[in-house]
């Protein structure tokens, strides 16, 4: 692998994803890296976070000593709730998800294909994996944003022609934010929209399996990096 620009940190990726969440929207953040996004919502936005274990209106993490044993998110983190929050059972939480009531979800991924197929629940060769709520979110949220590192630890592209990992849902991803680029899933393939500071479209292409459509590529907004 050729070492090129510097990969953006998880926090910077989270800041870039947060720009996609416009005011007055309901959003579910997947377990793991996507949960960082909640730290970067600008003031003046009315983003309400849903946790699929039964919270609408998840607030910041609980301060040490202020944890409540009955209040946690789907990733088992002690959280708080924001004003106007509500609790619900799991069936109702997934009515919100499956019923198309959430504006967006941010999910991690192992692979995303050229057609927007998502693979994020099981590694090849393993007996078992965990669906969690990913299949429901991928099928039900109005917009699926994937937040992931651009390549694997071994330097292999995660954005591929066809997923070789077991699928979570077909043709569901609309936007991919990685540590080097922002890529939109469009009718004719994958369009490179932004490159991270220090990266050229050609360098991003080298780490991406399918051919990227290059029309108007801009740099990540400066406020992000």
């Amino acid at each position: 692998m050729i070492i090129m620009g510097e990969m953006m940190s998880d926090e910077i990726m989270a800041r870039r994803v947060a720009l996609e969440l416009s005011g007055d929207c309901f959003v579910n953040l997947g377990i793991g890296m996507p949960m960082l996004v909640s730290n970067h919502i600008g003031t003046g936005k009315q983003v309400m976070f849903q946790a699929e274990n039964g919270i609408l209106g998840v607030g910041p993490r609980a301060e040490p000593g202020m944890e409540d044993k009955d209040l946690g998110n789907a990733g088992d983190e002690h959280v708080t709730v924001s004003a106007g929050a509500s609790f619900m059972d799991s069936a109702t939480a997934f009515d919100m998800i499956r019923g198309g009531h959430l504006d967006a979800t941010v999910l991690g991924a192992f692979q995303v294909s050229e057609k927007g197929d998502l693979a994020n629940w099981k590694l090849p060769g393993r007996k078992l994996g965990s669906y969690g709520g990913a299949m429901d979110l991928a099928a039900g949220a109005r917009k699926v944003i994937v937040m992931m590192k651009h390549v694997t630890n071994d330097g292999l592209p995660r954005i591929v022609r066809e997923c070789s990992y077991p699928l979570t849902a077909k043709n569901c991803v609309s936007l991919i934010v990685t540590d080097i680029a922002v890529i939109k899933v469009v009718d004719d393939g994958l369009e490179l929209c932004e490159t991270a500071p220090g990266w050229t479209p050609a360098q991003v292409q080298q780490l991406t399996e399918p051919q990227l459509i290059v029309r108007n590529v801009s740099s990540w907004p400066l406020s992000v990096s």
């Binding site: 939480a93 007996k127 078992l128 669906y131 969690g132």
Partner: peptide, 24 residues
């Protein structure tokens, strides 16, 4: 996991279900 180990050893059968489908 303990469960995956037990499944690999053929001791436990696992039916994996998407969470919302399980709830419903």
């Amino acid at each position: 996991s303990l469960l995956e180990r037990a499944a690999m050893d053929g001791l436990v059968e696992v039916e994996l279900v998407p969470q919302g489908t399980l709830a419903e």
